[in-house]
Amino acid sequence: MIATEDLQDSETGLRRAAEILRAGGLVAFPTETVYGLGGDARDDRAVARIFAAKGRPRFNPLIVHLPDVESARELAVFDDRAEALARAFWPGPLTLVLPIRPGSGLSPLVTAGLDSVALRLPAHPLARALLRAFGGPLAAPSANPSGKVSPTRGEHVRAGLAGRIEAILDGGPCAVGVESTILGLLGQPELLRPGGLAVEVLEEVLGERLATGGSAERPNAPGQLASHYAPGAAVRLEAVAPQPGEVWVGFGPCPGADLSLSERGDPVEAAARLFHILREADDRAGPEGRIAFAPVPEAGLGRAINDRLRRAAAPRG
């Protein structure tokens, strides 16, 4: 259990919140939509702890919160449409999914290993003050246990996450009360999630209708394909020992393993290392090689890890 601090909207509260975030801790903070659960978007372990604290069942991509458009341009590639939407609606309840810029420095857990990133500039003055005080990008899904109602007050956060996170920065009730609208700009503009900004005003600025829906053949949101996050090498799961020629990735005590998600069997550490280890194992195996993963318990973050590994091992189209 973690002793969750209650921080107030003050210079002292902001300084303490920024200090916790720089140390890899988690801080819930208000936006104009709902309270977000913030962690350093560049820190693998901090991002993995967000999933663990929420009990989030899989590594869905997280929204990165930023203080200004200049910071957003450092992380993603903006076309004319993105620039127009940013001028019209940022800061505000709009999230844009854009191509990630090479060398962004973001944890691959934030983007679920994809080539796109979801960005938002919150309008809440306390959120903006925290982002400036922290001085970096914050990954921040809603600050509630996965599957529960999103929180719009500090006491809602405490009821759901006390003992799992370091602090709650209380800024009073949220004004909008529903999550941000998510718009994908990776091709044709697509509404990925309705939210606090009406579709009609987005279409007016874009001058075109938004696509909706999606399928496994043409996904409009991350993580819909059965085969996903796949390395060049073939992947075998539930491997208690390697076969000849395999790169064996352990979990917990695995004498002789080439690499390990976590030698201690810590699912948070394994989650933080997953995408990095997958890439390193792929480099070692080569495109004609094979990777074998030791069993990971199907509980807590282990479910998320196994979900991604099953997608990596799925037959390729």
Rank of each mutant, 00 (worst) to 15 (best):
T4C: 01
E5F: 09
L7M: 08
T12H: 07
T12G: 13
L14I: 00
R15T: 00
A17M: 05
A18G: 02
E19H: 01
E19D: 12
G24P: 01
G25R: 09
L26A: 08
L26E: 11
T31C: 10
D40A: 14
D43H: 15
D43L: 04
D44P: 15
D44T: 08
R58D: 15
P67W: 00
A72C: 10
E74M: 09
A76K: 10
A76R: 12
R81M: 06
A82D: 03
A82C: 14
R87D: 15
A88C: 09
F89G: 04
W90C: 05
P91W: 00
P93W: 11
L94G: 01
L96T: 04
L98G: 02
L106H: 05
L109N: 13
A112R: 04
S116C: 08
V117K: 13
V117G: 11
R120N: 02
R120C: 02
L121K: 00
P122D: 03
F134Q: 00
F134A: 01
G136M: 08
L138R: 01
S142W: 09
T152F: 03
R153C: 07
G160I: 07
A162T: 09
R164I: 05
I168E: 12
I168H: 09
L169C: 09
D170W: 02
P173K: 03
V178I: 14
I182Y: 08
G184N: 10
L186S: 09
L186W: 05
G187S: 13
Q188E: 15
L191G: 10
P194T: 08
P194E: 11
G195K: 10
G196Y: 12
V201R: 15
L206I: 09
G214L: 12
S215L: 10
P219T: 07
A226Y: 15
H228E: 12
H228Q: 07
A234L: 13
A234P: 07
V235T: 06
E238S: 08
A239K: 03
A241G: 03
G245H: 14
E246S: 09
F251Q: 12
G252E: 14
G256N: 07
G256P: 01
A257E: 09
S260D: 02
S260V: 03
L261D: 01
L261V: 03
E263L: 15
R264H: 14
V268K: 03
A271N: 07
A272E: 06
L274E: 09
A281H: 08
A285V: 10
E288V: 04
G289Q: 06
I291Q: 11
A292G: 05
A294S: 15
G300W: 11
L301A: 14
A304S: 13
I305R: 03
D307R: 06
L309N: 13
R311Y: 05
R311I: 05
A314K: 12
